[in-house]
């Protein structure tokens, strides 16, 4: 079982396995792989703590109910699965600043934290605007050959490539 403790697997093997996984989620659970809706449901559940039941009356949350469902547990499972994978390869480390960021902007945690927070806000906002993320549109919707998903996935990378060029080639 040496392969379980290897730090990296071939991207083609990992991709093929995710492809097979997507057959089974559709066949067994009748759900495509997706993640970002769960963050919207969680946001609604947190809002409910402060504002009570009237949160459920918001038009958005009438469509995306703030509740725990299949996909919400999928996302929790993903954190557990990644924990196991990192632990098996001795990759588990509690860190603040990734290498590539440190090389461009230094090792201080605060700037990285602020970038992650603002990036997260845009990512959450954009994923719900586009009605999906890199998994829901980029993998599941793309394989259903949905036009909405192919447009979204292309725009994720167009926006990402332009922004990364600006951040790391112009600003840094």
């Amino acid at each position: 079982m040496n392969w379980l403790s290897e730090a990296r697997w071939s991207p083609y093997a990992v991709g093929a396995a995710i492809g097979v996984l997507s057959w089974f989620t559709l066949l067994v659970s009748r759900h495509p792989l997706g993640c970002s809706t769960s963050f919207a449901r969680s946001a609604g559940m947190i809002e409910r703590i402060f504002r009570g039941r009237k949160v459920d009356e918001k038009p958005y949350y009438r469509e995306v109910r703030p509740e725990i469902d299949w996909q919400w547990l999928l996302v929790i499972g993903m954190a557990i699965g990644a924990f196991l994978a990192a632990w098996l390869s001795g990759d588990l480390a509690v860190l603040w600043v990734p290498e590539r960021w440190a090389a461009a902007f230094g090792t201080a945690p605060l700037p990285r934290l602020l970038a992650a927070l603002s990036g997260g806000i845009l990512l959450g906002f954009g994923s719900r605007w586009a009605d999906g993320c890199t998994s829901g549109h980029g993998i599941s919707g793309a394989m259903q050959l949905a036009v909405s998903s192919w447009i979204s996935a292309c725009c994720f990378f167009i926006g990402g490539i332009l922004a990364a060029w600006f951040i790391y080639r112009v600003v840094a």
Binding site: F39, R100, T134, C155
Partner: peptide
């Protein structure tokens, strides 16, 4: 929806360095 939302997502993707799943 998909083009504008996708571009916004992309900028967040580059700043954060992770997506909602990863």
């Amino acid at each position: 929806r998909n083009a504008i939302g996708g571009l916004l997502f992309g900028v967040g993707f580059a700043l954060l360095g992770y997506c909602p799943g990863t």
